[in-house]
Every structure is written in C-alpha cells, then in structure tokens.
Nucleic acid binder design. Structure first.
Lengths: 343, 343
DNA sequence: CTTAGCACTCCACAACCGAGAGTGCTAATA
DNA sequence: TATTAGCACTCTCGGTTGTGGAGTGCTAAG
C-alpha cells in the first residue's frame, strides 16, 4: 500500500504540477520537497506510484503527471486543513452583500465575481423556496379570456404567469375569486391547502368551475414546478488556458454551460450532501467535462437552496478556489456574516 | 474611380473569400466569375483595387483579401436584393412563436436560436415599454419597515422591488395608500400622473408623508429607469473558427459579451435608425470587436423595443445572416406573421 | 535501503529544402 | 489602346533532419 513517503511524493507532485503545469521530475521533488532524499530514491517511489495509477508519464523520459486518483488524494488532504480568506476580495464581498436582498441578482453577481477573482468559471443554481407559503394572490384581467396570475410568496418572491381561461371573466369576478382563494390559501403551506382549495371552489364556486380549475392548475404548476434557475459567469476566463488547448473540447464545454439541464446535472451531485463537494475530471456525470473539476457548495439564501461553484481545469488551484468559494458563500448565505474559517 | 468591372471583381472576391476563407487569386476570379477575361487582366484590376484600399495581400505571392471597405461595398449590394427565408428553420420558428407572450423569455430563446441556426453569436437588447401605463399598484408589507412595491403595467409587464420605508406601516395603511395611488395613477401614462400624484399625496396623506415620498420616489425609479435587458446565445459557436484563431482577442470579445454595458454600446448604433443595420469590423464602437461584424435590426415585441442581432467574424455569411435574422424578427415582432420578403 | 553514475529515450525547436500558388512585368497581339 | 501569354520571382507550407536537454531506468557501490 501507500507508505508515508509515497504519500508525500504524490502530494508534492500534485502541488508542483498545479503550480507549473509541466510534468514533474524526480530532481524537482528531491530539491524542493524531500531535500534529504536523492532523486534516485524518489524515482523508485515514482515508479511504484505509477503502477498504482497515481501518476503517469506522457512519454518515457518526461516527468510524471498526476492522475485523477492523485488529485483526489490531494483534495482530500487539503480539505482537512484550515483555510483563510483571500484578502484581495474584501471590497467585492461588500458589493455582494449589498445585493443579497434579491437572490437572483445576488447569484448572478456571485458567479461573475467568482469568475473575476479566480479566473475560472463561476456557476450557480438557485432552487425553489424551501416552504411555499402564499402571502398574496391576485388575478388580473389582461384581455378577452386572458388573465395574469400573480403570486407573492412569503419572503418576497414573486411568480406571475399569463394564462388563457376557458371563458371570459370581468375583473370583479376575478377579484372575488382571488379573494376567496386568498382566505383559504394565504399564510399556509401550499401543499397543505391545495386539495382543500380544490374541493372548496368545486363546491362554492361552481359557477366558474372551469375557470377555477384552470386557475388552480396553473397555480399549482407555478408553485410545485418551480424550476431551478442557473447562472454562469466568467466563461471566457478559461480560453487562454493551456489545459484547454483542444478547442473542440472547450467548445463542447462552453456549449453545455449554455444549457440549463447540463448545469443541473453537474451540480446535482452536490445537492444531496451538505458542505463542500469536489468532483475531479471524469468523476463528474457529464463526459464532456472530463477535463474539468468542479468545486461547489450549497447554501441557503433568501430562504432558497442555492448551489454555488467553480469550474476549472483538473489542474486548478483547489486550495484557493475553496477559500474564495467559502468567502462568497459565507457572504451570500442567510446566517449572515462570515461564519467559518475566517481570519 | 471604380469602373463597372472593378466592382464586379471586388464583389466576386468578397463572395469567394466569404465562402473559402482563403486569399483569392486572379486565376480563380477569371475561371469562376469573369470567364471571358484572362487572369492577367484581372490582375491589373486587382492591382488598382489594392491601391484604392479595397484589397490587400497578406504577403507577396498570395491572393487578395478584402478590406472592410470592400465588405461594405458587398453588404450594400446585397441589401438591395430581395431575400427569401431559409427553409430549414421553420420548426424552430413555431417554437419561438409559442413563447412570444413573455418578451424576456422570447428574446432569450431567440438569441439561442440565432446561435444554433447560423453558428454565430445571437444577441438581443430589450428596451423599456413604449408607454408606461400602470394597471395595478400594490404595496405589501414584508416586515418591520420593509415593503414590497408591486407594479403591473398595461401589457402584463411586472415590476417589483423591496424597499425600506422611513417608518413602519400596517398592511391596512399600505392598502389604503395603494388604493389612493391606484385611483390617481392607474390607466394613465406615468409621466402624466407623477407630479399630480406627488402633489396629491402631499396634500391628502400628510400623515404618511415621508413614506409616500419614499414610495413614489421608488416607483419613479422603477418606471423611468427601466434599463435595457441583454441576452446572448451561442457564444461558443465562434470557438473553432479560423477567423478567431487569436485566443487573446477572442477572450476579449467573450468577456465583453458578459457585460451589459458593452452589448449596449454595440447595439446603440441600431437603436436610432429603423430596419436592418450592419457594422463591419472596426466600424463598430468597441475596438475589441474589430474582428467582428454585427447584423442587427429592431422590432417591437410585447410593446417594447427590441434589438436583435448576430455577431460573427467579418468574413461572415451576410446574406444568410440577414435572412435568418429577418425570419426571427418577423416571428417575434408584434405585427405578427411573416410580413416581409417571405416565401 | 540509499545513492551516484551512466547509457538511453524522447521531445522540442530550429534549420533546411522543395513544391506550389500567385504575383508583377514585359512583349506580343487584336 | 486594351488584352493576353509567358516568365522570372517571391513567399508560404509541409515534411525532414539534426541537436540539446531533461528525465528516466538500471546497476553497482556505500
């Protein structure tokens, strides 16, 4: 198995390779990290590590490059360490805090910020509100047989949708309808009242039964579907990187980041577990991203689950990425001020 | 000046260069376009065109490449021609039409669609509503001293903003306030009623004067600022293109497309004049876009001014781009069905 | 177990060369 | 006078060759 020194060597190689991007030779390790051992000794270790699939050589007589397996080792190691905020992003964090009121705007800004600070790609997914409690319901007549459904949720989130009703209604009728719906539905979780409401309108409002059914169906659609929203920022950052010199692959990646479903797939691994989550290279569910790693974490902002992350090359600076992400996340999340690791 | 044949030659060169991307030689022109003239004759013309700055050579003994000046000539020429819809995008247009109800969603989809069909970058800017007529005003209490301002405009556009008031108010007070504001402001252009409203609340509601002033100020902010919204789609399309082999420049371009102001600058040239508008290479106001051309046009969708465009390399297929853009725009714009050129 | 020494491998880079495409010029032609 | 054929010249592109350097694997000695 892995001896203590094997571990030292492989971690050193990952560290060095992340910094330089060049295959790492035995001399380098001997000179910079394990000063009391000669290059030849290191070479033997490296040879072992190669058969264990922690390293590989692009060709004989080149240095070694870490495999995803080695990165995993490295990442697990630094996850145990304590980190501190990067100092340079303080001003931006203030700016971010100012936008925290609107979750969508905040996440949009956060992704751009992540991109700017780290030079990787920032991504975010904003989930539905944790508990959907209606605060206000309005039906507004827009034209013949079309009405605007307007729902204000507790917490200030607003949903609206223009719908076509089976038959025309005056604004007065609609007001009456929204009044009745309000008395039943406002202040309680939607899940609890939906069926009650259904029964109630069937019973009391048989005059507009069709319209009511449509309206409630639409409301239910709005409130239970509540799709994730996705954000990206700084996609252009990875353009110059030597790790992405294959433009075809890079194009595939950029293409994915324009589709909501793909981003959804990427972050879904994180949605389960709490806290930081890192997928390296081909660990992640979309094969086009095999050259990328994703560092992500979840938070609650404005009562909604959010996943914020960074996409970079497998050879990304995980340590710094984690720090920055935690900084952003701390600022973003509902339990306010810096709450972890801080300086 | 430009003789008839000079023109023929330069147009042929642009046409051929757009198709192949290779410098065009005199033989090619003689063989494919001006069959009754020899290569030597064409060479003389080309020499003239070079001193007139319509063409240039990347090096001696290469063919000629058109300058922006030549592209301008070419574009002006094809603008005069009648075009027909590209047949292949019919299914997508139907899809687009289905989303026309919500201008924002429609434009988002339109840019992605443009990207997909043309393999260039789709952009769009959505302006403010032409006439801001309030249909409904609500103030909703969210917490101590914070309230949600909810404005429904004629046409179905919704604005909302959470504001902090100078002093706390009950929901009843807020309802009264919104009732009063509604009676004055609903159904008339905001510009006409703002001052009336101001005077009225000062007069009749001196009890909440501070709050009213804040509320009206915020409303005015929402309704008069009404910033443009911007959309992009298919940014990854240009990645493989040989015209953008300088990754540094490409990165600058992609960076710009993430900033709203930059896109604003790019489309502002179009906002003035009606109809189609093409900027070629360094004609456009942002120097980083000197390798790009933009084909754009404006429309009205959902009562709002929209500018939709395509960004491609200077060597883009203008003819096809224009066709596609017109197709999209026709589907998108308020006066409904295909209204120009169409098959 | 560790290390110095050495032969070997392979890449990266530069120099070189020839083929091909296209031009400019000149002199002949209609 | 406008057009064209012919020809020498230039420049790029692709392939080949050669060299320096970095790094390895192996062996034998400490």
């Amino acid at each position: 198995m892995l001896s203590e020194r094997h571990l030292e060597v492989v971690l050193a190689i990952v560290y060095e390779y992340i910094k330089t991007g060049e295959p790492v030779g035995s001399r380098t390790i001997s000179r910079k990290f394990l000063k009391d051992r000669s290059a030849a000794t290191i070479r033997n270790e490296m040879s072992d590590l190669e058969v264990m699939e922690y390293l590989y050589q692009p060709h004989t007589s080149a240095g070694r490059i870490p495999t995803p397996k080695a990165y995993r080792l490295y990442v697990d190691a630094i996850m145990r360490r304590q980190r501190s905020f990067p100092a340079d992003s303080d001003g931006w964090l203030r700016e971010l805090r100012a936008r925290r009121r609107d979750a969508e705007e905040a996440l949009g800004y956060a992704t751009r910020l992540l991109g700017k600070i780290t030079n990787y790609i920032g991504v975010a997914a904003l989930g539905p509100v944790e508990e959907t409690v209606l605060q206000r319901v309005e039906f507004i007549r827009m034209g013949h047989r079309t009405a605007l459904i307007l729902l204000v949720l507790k917490g200030g989130l607003i949903h609206h949708k223009t719908v076509v009703l089976p038959c025309d209604m005056t604004q007065e009728n609609l007001d009456e309808l929204s009044g009745r719906v309000s008395t039943v539905a406002v202040g309680r979780p939607w899940g609890d009242v939906r069926d009650t409401l259904q029964a109630y309108v069937e019973d009391a409002l048989e005059r507009y039964a069709d319209n009511c059914r449509t309206a409630i169906r639409e409301m239910d659609g709005i409130l239970t579907e509540q799709p994730f929203q996705f954000f990206t920022g700084g996609t252009h950052n990875v353009l110059g990187m030597p790790d992405f010199n294959d433009l075809g692959r890079l194009q595939a990646i950029m293409g994915l980041l324009e589709e909501d479903e793909s981003i959804g797939k990427l972050v879904q691994g994180c949605s389960a577990e709490k806290g930081l989550c890192i997928t390296i290279g081909d660990e992640n569910p979309v094969f086009q991203m095999r050259d990328c790693s994703i560092v992500m974490a979840s938070a609650t902002t404005g009562g909604r689950r959010a996943i914020v992350g960074l996409i970079g090359p497998v050879r990304m600076d995980y340590e710094r990425s984690i720090s920055v992400l935690e900084g952003i996340l701390g600022t973003l999340s509902d339990n306010g001020e810096s709450e972890e690791g801080g300086r």
